[in-house]
Design a protein around this nucleic acid. Structure first.
Lengths: 175, 175
DNA sequence: ACCGTCGGTTCGTTCATTGAACCCGCTACC
DNA sequence: GGTAGCGGGTTCAATGAACGAACCGACGGT
């Protein structure tokens, strides 16, 4: 999106944000990263995204400081992509978008976002109605809802059937 | 984005939302609509968007129930695009995105979002820190910040130099 | 020696975006 | 009554991005 064909005339922080995260697939990559996905192949099978596009997105997200590429084993050399503070700061945006999609477009509940400390479902602005506090991303528990396919094909979706915290790395079946 | 080339494999309300509002320019059109822009030509000059793309976006946003096309004079026939409840429901998402862009990407303050009743700047989750309530879109006051160009070229930007409420129709100089 | 896996790159085809040109209904002006 | 202008579009050729399939290289297992 950048490189000349950007939202140049816009003097606006929304336009700046969209230059970084507004391309196709980008927000879904960040969503997966917040859900705990870290490996190239897990992004690939879970998103169903072309490999070239995934490589490009991971590259620019790394350059923008939203993901961090780090080596987790030496032989064979393997890297994982971990979401940074800057990426975690997008959680309120993604939560708001998920809420809009659920209320305006969907007929069923796919996932619940809860406060990990007390299990209460988050309110419309990301707060815990029981505790009265705003819940940081690391304390959000994702639990499956009734509309979710109980036997999905890909290993990432299967791993997401168990309740887990945001940011916590996802344990995929290593075949 | 729709029509076959969508995020078909994603079982997720974020993906559903992005199928509707995830295309290039779409969220900026909605931002302008929330700021009070209603006329084709105002969108056109303020966004600097190709006419064909603007027509396409207005069409799909109308079909999706986010904007409503309505005639405001008969002769010559003229229509305006007014944001609906479904579009207003995107305000928390846009506010969160603006906040992220401002804090993570920008060095200066362009606009403040305030509670119209008391003038206090909104907190990170869209609440008024003074009143302790969540502020609905219609009660948000947009005021220019210090980083904003004081003499912009297009009439929409000039009209936005005055404080005004969200949703309130924008008065452009009718040349 | 060979097969499989992970994390990519390359490549031809299809689709979307761009900017410029054109069009239509109408009004105001001369 | 001709014509200039405006709002709100559509059409078109050229460019750029996304797609999917194929290929590749480093390694590990058998």
């Amino acid at each position: 999106m950048a490189l000349g064909k950007d939202y140049a005339t816009q003097e606006c922080s929304i336009a700046s944000a969209l230059e970084v995260v507004g391309e196709r697939w980008t927000l879904l990559v960040i969503r997966d990263a917040l859900y705990g996905v870290r490996r190239y192949n897990d992004f690939l099978v879970h998103l169903g995204i072309p490999r070239a596009v995934l490589s490009a997105r991971l590259k620019t997200l790394t350059e923008e400081g939203i993901l961090e590429k780090r080596r987790y084993q030496e032989s064979p050399p393997r890297d994982e992509y971990v979401v940074t503070e800057r990426g975690i700061a997008l959680w309120p945006t993604l939560r708001a978008l998920a809420l809009w999609g659920r209320e305006q477009l969907m007929d069923r509940r796919l996932r619940y976002f809860r406060h990990a400390d007390c299990g209460t479902e988050l309110g419309p602005y990301g707060e815990c109605p029981a505790c009265g506090t705003v819940v940081p991303a690391a304390d959000v528990l994702i639990t499956p809802g009734p509309g979710l396919d109980p036997d999905p094909a890909d290993p990432v979706s299967r791993a997401l059937l168990k309740p887990k915290r945001l940011l916590e790395p996802l344990e995929t079946e290593h075949v």
